[in-house]
Design a protein around this nucleic acid. Sequence first.
DNA 1: ACCTGAACACCGTTCAAGT
DNA 2: ACCTGAACACCGTTCAAGT
Lengths: 246, 246
Amino acid sequence: MGGMATRTRRAERREEPLSRERIVETAVELLDAAGEGGLTFRALTERLATGPGAIYWHVANKSELLEAATDAVVAAALAVVPAEPAESPGSPGSPQDGIRTVALGLFDAIDAHPWLATQLSTQLSRAPGGSVTPRVLESIGRQVCALGVPEDGWFAAASVLVHYILGAAGQNAANAVHARVLGSGLDRAEFFGAVSKAWAELDPDEYPFTRAVAGQMYEHDDREQFLAGIALILAGITAVQPPAPA
Amino acid sequence: MGGMATRTRRAERREEPLSRERIVETAVELLDAAGEGGLTFRALTERLATGPGAIYWHVANKSELLEAATDAVVAAALAVVPAEPAESPGSPGSPQDGIRTVALGLFDAIDAHPWLATQLSTQLSRAPGGSVTPRVLESIGRQVCALGVPEDGWFAAASVLVHYILGAAGQNAANAVHARVLGSGLDRAEFFGAVSKAWAELDPDEYPFTRAVAGQMYEHDDREQFLAGIALILAGITAVQPPAPA
DNA sequence: ACCTGAACACCGTTCAAGT
DNA sequence: ACCTGAACACCGTTCAAGT
């Protein structure tokens, strides 16, 4: 919607009136910048140049604000994946591709907003009346259906997928944060070196598996590893319920 | 270690000197009683009849205390499962049984201590130097090995299992807490009724899967549902890597 | 070495008062 | 209807001082 005079736009981002939307937007910025501890009513009031009362006029409390922030980011992340998986027969995407797309969409969203991991897990459990649980459930549920899983297997398949995606993506994001915090340059190597070292010092009799897997854990590409887990689950889904006959 | 005189035991639980162990023990009690919000240095000092400084002498800060509490409970939960899965050829437990045992052990521990779910997820990501990550990883890793999975598949298999177990158990525990809070009597039905109702009111075009799965979600036994997910994963593990030839 | 307890900086939330 | 900002109750943590 172009304006004719650039002058009238001088108000820029200043003084647009406070709104729930603007508050949520600012909350996301604070969370991105400093994690869960960065979202504070003081920081919010400073950034929005108001008092706490103004915020409480638009938002009930902090947890509602967190829920709204989570929902906004998740909705944006899932908006990219097409609603109808592989609609036409000749279309390029298999249901498996659909699941990978949704999974990677959430993986990347959590990578970009590490606070999402904790928040999503929390809200999947609490606040079932909220909008974020149905959103996530629906987006992967559709792909599960498209896979031809019979109805009584829907819940198990969706559960395993959701919990794995959230858990693995959360761990990846946390690792990335650690690496970032430790310094710049060879962050990643340093961080993983520290972990490997700690684990290598474990008692070989008590922790043989952990020691053996320590290297494997960080050697490969994150997304590749993540997708290996998805592949395992997909194999399980189709093994439990043989694919529908053509 | 029997004492001869019962009189000398009169000190009972009173006035045993403050120790890190006693602090952690009390922390677990507070967490069990009132969840994560129940663990406070004020509550701790009151219960232990000291000042905050005394606690800080034995414990560095709150997050170290949380980690210690988590480790204590997890260690106790995993102590029941035998270290060596199906050692002798004729022994009753298959590797699959071993995995189910570990999974249910964690499931029950989280059910008994709902705060464990969040804590475990957090500590699996952060604090890789801690003791709880190796403990969990090792206990299910051994079973994965026993399953005959080749070494390059260890990480994926263990990842999927750990994340599913923690996620699903956490959700179950949260549901149980909600039901408990809502009242007594037909708690569970009421709580799930509320969720079902909220979901039934979703737009049928936008949320067909969520609506369809809502009933399925709460109809069946929790543990049975949980084990269905485990079965799916086990199928995936053996499908990706065919069982070793006899 | 171990404990006391006042004090500090900070948090979410409320509310009478303004416009 | 929407915003201000002082005030409240509570939090984790510190530290000089005791024993």
